[in-house]
């Protein structure tokens, strides 16, 4: 079967994040890497697609950057659609969903996979918005996914434990980190990824109106950005075999023991 995996290229999370001083949106310039949380969806997609099917990546980027997508291609995905357009700068979750939904329509997937949320923006609503725009059912927070007879069977995370959910395909599923162990791209995979097709499209190519996406379509205005009330660090002690006594004292002060 054919699987679409929505992936996001993000600035390296190891580098501190920044907000653009003018627009107050996340700075997403320069080199972008594959969001770690997307590696699980890519791995799950590769396992479920099997030999007869293939995995297509769908991503959106405000610039022409594709290095993160190449990482997922190196893992084994067959091809990618990357929607790149300056008009997408400042897109909110719904604008992103509109773009991804249009791109997915061009592929025709049995199953669409996405992470539960991205590591940099973590709004966590884009996948469900994509499903709604495509008129498809969705199951979020999957910690186990199996497919048989045209249906997915999902163990879905809940407050109390998990639900067993059944859903006919085509459908969209968001997977939690840890759902599978992502493979590392092999040397052969990395070399092969360089020549795999990456279809770069613009907003106009998708037939979307530029005013409905990006900052123009966001309908929210950042009015201020301020440092949160700093929580000062307290005492730091280096354990020399007796630090537990210091903790007990602290518990006594709080009258917890």
């Amino acid at each position: 079967m054919n699987v679409v995996v929505c992936v996001k290229q993000i600035p390296d999370p190891a580098a501190p994040g920044a907000l653009d001083p003018q627009s107050h949106t996340l700075v997403r310039e320069g080199k972008l890497i594959l969001d770690d949380s997307d590696a699980y969806g890519v791995e799950m997609g590769l396992q479920l697609a099997g030999d007869a099917g293939e995995v297509t990546l769908v991503s959106m980027a405000p610039n022409q950057e594709v290095s993160g997508v190449r990482t997922a291609l190196a893992m084994g995905a067959a091809k990618a659609i990357v929607v790149s357009d300056p008009a997408l700068k400042g897109s909110d979750a719904l604008s992103t969903a509109k773009v991804l939904a249009k791109a997915i329509e061009r592929v025709g997937a049995d199953l669409i996979l996405a992470a539960t949320e991205s590591t940099d923006g973590y709004t966590g609503t884009t996948p469900v918005q994509v499903a709604e725009l495509l008129g498809l059912p969705s199951v979020t927070f999957a910690k186990k996914v199996t497919v048989s007879d045209g249906k997915v069977r999902v163990e879905r995370q809940t407050e109390a434990g998990f639900d067993e959910v059944e859903c006919p395909m085509p459908c969209l599923v968001t997977v939690t980190a840890g759902v599978v162990e992502p493979r590392y791209p092999s040397f052969k995979g990395i070399m092969a990824a360089k020549s795999k097709p990456v279809d770069q499209l613009t907003v106009a190519d998708l037939g979307l109106d530029a005013s409905s996406v990006g900052a123009a379509g966001a309908r929210q205005e950042i009015t201020s950005v301020a440092a949160a009330e700093a929580r000062g660090g307290g005492d730091i002690v280096v354990d020399e075999g007796d630090a537990h006594e210091r903790i007990v004292q602290f518990l006594e002060q709080l009258k917890l023991v």
Partner: peptide, 11 residues
């Protein structure tokens, strides 16, 4: 189809 996801069991 959009409402087709069904819970079979809760744990």
């Amino acid at each position: 189809a959009s409402a087709a996801a069904t819970v079979l069991a809760r744990h």
